[in-house]
Amino acid sequence: MRLQVELVLEITDDTELTTAALEQIQGDDQLPDAERDRSREAVRRDESEALAYLVDPFDLVNGVPGVDLVQASWNSAHIEYDPDDEEWEFFDDEAEDEDEPVAGDEPGA
């Protein structure tokens, strides 16, 4: 099953975000030193990189009964967002199989 989630976040304190990401990188015992240096530089250069270090999709489903996360990918990027703009939509790609019902869309529901 594929669960697609899209979030729009407002960075209210880029220094706090960057500091938290740098602390997480520093505390990651699995990260080789060369990768740690590259990660620090990326986080200092771009808040979206900092956010990517702090958001973990595994946390979204951790503890959900009957579910094991098999694979996850995510990214973060700066966007122009206007909630009042009717042209702005989530998920710019179409559903892969539009014939499959979505929860709540079953016939008779």
Score class of each variant (00 low, 15 high):
Gly63Ala: 09
Thr12Glu: 03
Asp33Phe: 05
Val70Lys: 09
Arg38Ile: 01
Asp84Leu: 14
Leu22Phe: 12
Leu22Ser: 02
Ala34Asn: 13
Leu17Gln: 13
Asp56Lys: 12
Thr19His: 04
Glu23Gly: 02
Gly66Asn: 06
Leu17Ile: 12
Asp92Glu: 09
Asp14Pro: 08
Gln26Ser: 03
Trp88Ile: 13
Asn75Gln: 03
Tyr81Val: 10
Trp88Glu: 13
Pro101Gly: 03
Asp97Ile: 02
Glu49Gln: 15
Asp28Arg: 06
Arg45Phe: 04
Thr19Tyr: 03
Pro83Asp: 04
Ser48Trp: 03
Glu106Ser: 13
Asp33Gly: 05
Glu100Ala: 11
Pro32Tyr: 06
Asp13Ala: 04
Glu80Ala: 13
Thr15Glu: 15
Glu41Trp: 05
Glu94Thr: 10
Leu60Arg: 04
Arg40Pro: 03
Val55Tyr: 11
Val67Gly: 08
Glu89Met: 08
Thr15Ser: 11
Asn62Pro: 11
Leu54Ala: 12
Ser39His: 02
Asp56Gln: 14
Leu7Asp: 06
Leu54His: 13
Gln24Pro: 00
Tyr81Asp: 06
Glu100His: 06
Gln71Val: 02
Pro83Met: 10
Glu41Tyr: 07
Ser73Ala: 06
Asp84Glu: 14
Arg36Ile: 05
Asp59Trp: 03
Phe91Glu: 00
Leu3Cys: 11
Leu9Arg: 14
Leu69Gly: 14
Glu16Tyr: 00
Tyr81Glu: 00
Leu7Gln: 04
Asp13Leu: 05
Val64Thr: 12
